[in-house]
Design a binder for these strands. Sequence first.
RNA 1: GCGCCCGUAGCUCAGCUGGAUAGAGUGCCUGGCUUCGAACCAGGAUGUCGGGAGUUCGAGUCUUCCCGGGCGCACCA
Length: 569
Amino acid sequence: MILNELNQLLKESVAKVATKNALTFEQKLLEQVEFEISAEQLRGDYASSCCLKLAKHFNKKPVEIAEHVAANLDDSMISEIRIEGPGFINVFITPETKGALLKDILTHGDSWGATKDCTGKILLEFVSSNPTGPLHVGHGRGAVLGMAIANLLENIGYEVTKEYYVNDAGRQISILTSSVLLNAYVEDFDPDGTYEGTYVKELAERFKSKFGALDKEVDFGSLDEDKDIRLDTISAYFKSEFKQAWEEANEFSVSEILNLIKKDLQKFNIVHDHWFHESSLGVVEDDKSDLSKALKIIKDREHTYNKDGAEWFKTTEFGDDKDRVLLRENGEPTYYLTDVGYHKNKIDRNFDACINIFGADHHGYIPRLTAAFDVMKKDHQNIEFLLYQLVNLYEQGVKKTMSTRRGEYFSLSELREDLGPDVIKFFFLEKKSDHPMDFDMDLAKDESKNNPYFYAQYAYVRCCSILSKATFDPNSEIDLKEIENCFEIVSKTINYPLVLKEYALERSPHSLVHFVKDFSATFHSFYEQNPVLCEDKVTSNSRLLITSITKQILKNSFKILNVEPLEKM
RNA sequence: GCGCCCGUAGCUCAGCUGGAUAGAGUGCCUGGCUUCGAACCAGGAUGUCGGGAGUUCGAGUCUUCCCGGGCGCACCA
């Protein structure tokens, strides 16, 4: 990488200047001695502000330091060095170097941008929506984000396992099962608190035709006014009086809804490597279960106490605002303990990092999960959380709050059927994930440059269109002046691996979307002003090179964003 | 009340560990298709970076206090 070589030169030069002036050096300061990629041609290809940072330490004027440092910078790839402004060093790379690099990039092809700079195993958990209903739009944002981050991380060398945590146990699942049984076998019931979507009615129909009639009448007796008590009574009743129906309905409902979710995700080309079921965590009574292993470790390390008959974890010692219950008064594990058990399992699988992508409404879990993780983890491991904020849908300028009268959010499949998966992915990824998003459905449908998705696709289509008529000939001559004229495309192409690495480390796919938009704009502009298929063979070949690398960069970027590039529109 | 996130052009948003003149798109105005796809391009106008104070060569970026908006504060999942 050209920037790495330049940085090496710069550091050596600064070290020389320091020695000459009998100055000692801290490692930390040397880390700040770096070039950055210039945004505009006037400032060269690479620029460094290191002399401004060193000024105080050296007790000299930045410009003066810059002159000394620049004097040592000598390499055949540098055509010119300028010291400008308060003491910036701007370096210009020779067009010959750039031309050679570009040709080399084409031979890398689809792998250009990928590096092996990082190693390690990462577990990325995302979506993990309860299997009690189809995915809504908000889940979609998490799903799309997770996939893009996985791609970014893999691109820099990490081994990533994408995992979906299935909450297939607990009260919500009981309520789902009850809802299915009620819809299937009870004519008149109070739906308050049950799951009510049409998918539940369909599930009930299908369950009924599969399982058949019940062997006796359903009679709950008198039910409590309170909805929570009522629902629990109904669940308990079904569980004891219709054991077989309950178990089958439970299994049937969860697996059917999971299929629904899997199908939704597939349509977005979002694929998890592993579906981890909560039910596999076992029970506290079994010492070999993840649940009891987790509990034991926290107890053994003396982070727990007993209060009101319940077992508490002193998470406040780790910055949480209150302590958390692990085992309830009745001996049952809390949801929190199952999550802790799940993370114990992740730890035992030896991942170097566990990244959890959560909806921002779950941010309260971060301190308590971090606490548990830190108690149980091995030295090399760490945990990280990425939050995404709500998605607000707008149509005709009006906010679509809820999809149905029951307060269900707009479903992801409805949105996909309306717009198609790729434009949704592009829009979801365009905004920073911790920024609430206004999703303009009319803009997403618009097929013009107003719509950044189409704008970027159109750039790719134009490349394809040109390259279907002629191709770059690597053995023929190119005009280096043409390369110089396309400063931005060339610079972004050469430095592409660096920015991808940065985006991965910052976990910011939105930056890649902005990159793609900018890059597309630059190409559209180039296209309008420079006829690629022109009389002059050398000029044409040079522009075909520019077109080819543009196509390649767009293709590779779309791949990471998990968006299919269009060759025709 | 406590905690987290957000506040940048009329609107939707970028802005890298503090760096050169705060940027895109949209909307508004003006030009450009006999020619590689005009689903496009070129040009013009647009700012108290929510507000105050502080840190320093330098602050949209860091600290602190206010203001405004969103979310979360279970022995639910």
